[in-house]
């Protein structure tokens, strides 16, 4: 897959929808392209993160290790971004992400990612939107869980 195709892929991600092609090309060019076999770990919960991943092809599972053992909480498909929380707020990874099929991803290093957000405020807005969306989903899940626990 060449840079041109990667740019097309990035285009489809809402986060990057409003950004110039040349900037996306720069992002693609300066990011490492990584391939994972099914079952490979992208990153482990609780380790410090250095980059965010944009999935180009394939699927990955998000797994949270709690007191009750590992629990798959979500599945990610292509054109999704994962691992940005750790690099946004400098906290350890909040979950483990594992490739559930053969996977191609762009690994965006932390400083590039933050630089892009600084350069393109729309991107910041998109990230807020996507984080808020996830928060809303989490809240819904929490409500469901609480409802299920309630006597």
């Amino acid at each position: 897959m060449s840079i041109a195709e990667e740019v097309n892929c990035l285009r489809r991600i809402p986060l990057f929808a409003n950004i110039d092609t040349s900037k996306l090309k720069l992002l693609a060019f300066t990011s490492e392209r990584l391939s994972f076999r099914s079952g490979d770990i992208l990153f482990e919960q609780d380790e410090m993160g250095t980059c965010a991943y944009i999935l180009l092809r394939g699927e990955a599972e998000v797994i949270i290790t709690g007191p009750g053992g590992p629990l798959a909480v979500a599945t990610l498909g292509s054109n999704e971004i994962v691992g940005e929380i750790a690099i946004l707020c400098d906290v350890p990874r909040t979950a483990t992400v594992r490739a559930s099929t053969d996977l191609e991803a762009l690994c965006v290093p932390k400083d590039h990612f933050l630089q892009m957000i600084a350069d393109f405020p729309q991107m910041g807005l998109e990230i807020m939107r996507s984080l808020a969306h996830r928060l809303e989903q989490t809240t819904v899940r929490l409500r469901e869980v609480l409802a299920a626990q309630a006597p």
Binding site: S22, K25, L26, F29, T30, D111
Partner: peptide, 16 residues
């Protein structure tokens, strides 16, 4: 195309 918009001394020049 990729690098002309970056300010001088940006680390990308060196690295990429």
């Amino acid at each position: 195309e990729l690098f002309a918009g970056l300010p001088p001394g940006h680390e990308f020049f060196e690295r990429f």
